[in-house]
């Protein structure tokens, strides 16, 4: 049976996470269609048609989907997806919001945040903040899946030549409306896909001090993240939180600064290739997972790191 992948996008361009989701879908089957739901999102459809290995792109362009409201998009996905064997989406906040509704409308279970596909009906996912890894088998005819994108290498964005079909099915549930949004614009790479991430914790003391991390980030082309404690204290915005209940990152290099290393934080960055910890407490649990640990006061170590890096990068 074929697979439907829900495209992640902002109405003007395709989010790269879609390429990781297609990779996960490919591990479950070969006949892959992509659904682009949005408003004035034709360009996204064109882009999706070029993804390597995609058969057909379905574009649902309607004002009801413009802000990706789960009530509306889920009705569309359930209608379009009901005859597919699988529906795959990214485990970002849109996927988390919408896909459980799709599953409920189809009366099937959802498998959240998978990190591996074992077979067409068997998936691997972390539970208990990554302290256990479960292999689960689904008995449902349509399998509704969200994907931890950092666990799948993206397919090529180019090379495919899928057909593009418009579907004019408008689902406006009429129970919700978009009011406003407050999204941080940043020139730095996206936290979820950056090769290098530097994160600050409670040890940073305030938001102003995050500047020293940003300077290092700019030298390395890195994204900046944070622990829950730093977000709760208002140092930085919520979308920078890395962890069990925040963003999952798996960069080549993760630098944890003034972060103790609680399991909920480790759940979000434990798959990084190389981990560096800078902490003044040599007993901090973060050192148990760090490849390179530096016991030091961050207010001395980070500025020094910046000047040393200037010499080598």
């Amino acid at each position: 049976m074929s697979i439907l992948v829900i495209a992640e996008h902002d109405n003007s361009s395709l989010d790269q996470a879609t390429l990781n989701v297609v990779a996960a879908a490919k591990a479950a089957g070969s006949d892959i269609d992509v659904l682009v739901a949005g408003e004035n999102c034709g360009a996204v459809g064109e882009e999706a048609a070029k993804i390597d290995g995609v058969n057909k792109v379905l574009v649902a362009d309607n004002a009801a989907y413009g802000h990706f409201l789960a009530e509306n998009v889920s009705a569309l996905v359930a209608e379009v997806g009901k005859d597919y064997g699988h529906i795959f989406a990214s485990a970002g906040t849109n996927g988390k919001d919408t896909m459980p509704r799709v599953a409920a409308l189809l009366d099937v279970a959802q498998v959240s945040d998978i990190i591996r596909v074992e077979s067409e009906d068997t998936f691997v996912r972390p539970i208990y903040a990554g302290n256990a890894i479960a292999t689960v088998k689904s008995a449902d005819s349509t399998k509704v899946i969200t994907v931890r994108t950092t666990s799948f290498d993206p397919v090529a964005a180019e090379g495919g030549s899928a057909s593009v079909e418009n579907i004019d099915s408008a689902h406006d549930a009429g129970v919700s409306e978009f009011v406003s949004e407050d999204k941080a614009e940043s020139d730095r790479p996206d936290l979820g896909s950056a090769d290098i991430v530097i994160s600050g914790g409670r040890g940073m003391q305030n938001g102003e001090n995050f500047k020293i991390l940003e300077q290092v980030a700019d030298l390395l082309g890195a994204a900046v993240g944070a622990s829950r404690a730093a977000v709760d204290a208002g140092f930085v915005p919520n979308d920078m939180q890395v962890g069990q209940t925040g963003k999952i990152v798996a960069p080549q290099l993760y630098i944890a600064v003034g972060i103790s290393g609680a399991i909920q934080h480790l759940a979000g960055m434990g798959d990084s290739k190389v981990i560096v910890a800078i902490n003044k407490d040599e007993e901090a649990p973060i050192f148990q997972v760090a490849d390179y640990g530096l016991v030091a006061d961050l207010f001395e170590a980070v500025p020094e790191l910046e000047s040393k890096l200037k010499e080598v990068v």
Binding site: A132, A134, T135, S138, E282, F287, V289, Y292, G293
Partner: peptide, 17 residues
């Protein structure tokens, strides 16, 4: 959904200071 197995995650070794 049936759980076929539950395993411990790969443990990361602490590196060097």
């Amino acid at each position: 959904l049936s759980t076929l197995k539950v395993e411990a995650p790969k443990q990361r070794e602490a590196g060097v200071k």
